[in-house]
Nucleic acid binder design. Structure first.
Lengths: 353, 353
DNA sequence: TTGTAAGCGTTATCAG
DNA sequence: CTGATAACGCTTACAA
């Protein structure tokens, strides 16, 4: 059985509060007693029991992370960033995969709440254009202001008007940039494979696509816009639809995985990329440079996003950050590769995977 | 503030023990009182506080998972399997990335221990050929038998002679199989890019490679064997070395990521694959079919591995499984693709990522 | 500066 | 079957 604070107190011949004070440093202890306590701690190899401590102080040194799927290279990077940031501070990470299902997300939030997680990083599926979800989002907002105070940081979206922290990237303008790039290559009939539409991120990317087309005097046809679920296979299926219904010369997918699926579909029709159809994605995941042709995309600093989200959260937890929610927008960057520009050749990028 | 058991007891006009008994079902309660309690629970939306409960019962409903890196597609799949298995039972998963560093692994184990995790799934870096690590491995073994009883399941390796549970794949015979395949293609001078040698998995794969060569009457030269760290970049660097030092016509890398790095190096020398040099890997991660040529490999059922490991662990936790450690070996399968066989053409596999 | 003691929300052991 | 009550290991007023 592991030694408890009592054992240490007995061994050092002091009271348990003195031991506690040595451990936490919250109150001064004379150097003589402190030494005795430290010796006892050492020889009993005592460590405070975080469960007991948590019961009293409502602190678990655990943060929850809820993402929509582990099967995403993008979130793998984000998770890594989070882990790196919090593990230095001795926090543990409880990960959950909502599997793109809001019911799961809600369940996990409750679990985290009753588990007294110290904070949550959340990629929410709730939609504040949907009346049904509004209550839930309000609940999330209250988590931060409650007596229990579980700060929440949103990933890739704000969590409602209440204004909790969030770290996002400029989806709309980035989507416009990549669409503009397609236009600059002479394309006019540009299709879009959108992501899950209950996610704001997807709507913003669609919006940016529209912006750029409108700007160029092109009226996007309804036919040009199809909706996937961010998986490669959905990109593949939707692309086959587009090939049947439209005569587009370019397609912009809301993420790289769908773009890669789209490329497969295009290939099956023996069309050349980019000569017959140009393809662009969003995220910049490592397979982009492995495929031929390599994929034009928007680089999103996923690792940084995780790291920053974690640091925002830690600041809230420590009470360093106060006041209203902060929204941090990360810079993205257009990366032109062979799928839109036959001249460009890029080597396999082997770093970071 | 969330309702506590006291609030429920007061609202229902019963004692807290009765409430507890209704919650846990550990002792019978008259239907009348049970109803009153259930109503109170409902209207106060009471959930037992797992922290407090854990303090008393030494149960946290949390399992720890320590892997060597998140940056691996392989472990992403494993994690998904674990998550799927345990979340049904209401367990949370604490993930840690040891970053291929034994010191981190040890630290995380301690953290998990004092956190009273109910169990641990561990891909350990400790080496029981290394005297320094033996004590640590003994500690791991004791974790399961201690008074605290934290069962541990090993991933990809057994955890020492003590014999805790483990789920592995038949690394040695699979490595022999892939090497034999290379031999059957007419290769004699076959190089090997080994993994981190403190990991048993790496040694077994090397062993299998030797087995097959010996069997074919080929004496592997020392030059032919180099050591990487499982990253693509290390495969790239080691392959360049091999190209300089040897005149091998084939290379077997201990995992796919290194194999892909090797392919890049081979390409840079303007050599053809598989005509000039054939390449094979191990794991079967999804990028294998995205690259050209696609990569011959050993399919390891990563998701299953995670799921099975989790179920073994849950059985230990529930006390269903008793007795000595069980070692489960998963079947692997040789997958021949274009990197060793010019005739073979495989399409992009879009499933499961 | 130090010690005593009252909880935190449960579970488990007793009597009743 | 039910209800007091004592732990579990710690933090934190409050007293000394």
């Amino acid at each position: 059985m592991a030694a408890s604070i009592k054992d240490v107190a007995r061994a050092a011949g002091v009271s348990i509060s003195t031991v506690s004070n040595v451990m936490t440093g919250r109150r001064p202890v004379s150097s003589e007693l402190a030494d005795r306590v430290r010796n006892a701690i050492e020889s009993l190899s005592y460590r405070t029991n975080p469960i007991a401590s948590g019961l009293k102080s409502s602190r678990t040194n655990t943060i929850g992370v809820i993402i929509t799927t582990f099967q995403s290279l993008f979130f793998g990077q984000v998770l890594k960033g989070i882990q790196d940031a919090v593990s230095k501070k001795g926090f543990m990470v409880n990960v959950f995969d909502s599997n793109n299902n809001l019911a799961n997300e809600k369940r996990y939030i409750k679990q985290l709440e009753s588990f007294m997680a110290d904070g949550v990083i959340l990629l929410s599926l709730a939609d504040y254009n949907n009346p049904e979800d509004i209550d839930y989002l309000k609940t999330i907002g209250e988590l931060s202001t409650n007596r229990k105070r579980i700060p929440v940081v949103g990933l890739e979206r704000t969590l409602g008007p209440a204004g909790t922290d969030a770290v996002i990237c400029d989806n709309r303008s980035a989507a416009a940039a990549v669409t503009r790039h397609l236009i600059s290559k002479g394309h006019r009939r540009i299709a879009h494979i959108a992501g899950i539409m209950s996610m704001e991120m997807s709507r913003l990317r669609l919006q940016g696509y529209r912006d750029a087309l409108t700007e160029a005097g092109v009226r996007p046809q309804n036919d040009w816009i199809v909706t996937g679920d961010f998986t490669p296979y959905s990109g593949y299926l939707r692309m086959h639809e587009l090939l049947k219904k439209t005569n587009c010369t370019a397609v912009f997918a809301a993420n790289d995985q769908m773009a890669i699926g789209a490329i497969k579909a295009i290939r099956e029709k023996d069309l050349r990329i980019p000569e017959d159809i140009a393809v662009a994605g969003f995220d910049d995941i490592f397979p982009d440079t492995l495929i031929t042709p390599s994929l034009t995309t928007i680089h999103v600093p996923a690792y940084q996003m995780g790291k920053i989200a974690a640091n925002m959260l830690l600041n809230r937890i420590d009470g360093i950050a106060g006041g209203p929610g902060e929204k941090l927008t990360l810079k993205t960057q257009l990366i032109v590769r062979g799928s839109t520009d036959a001249e460009t050749r890029s080597a396999w990028d082997l770093s970071n995977w």
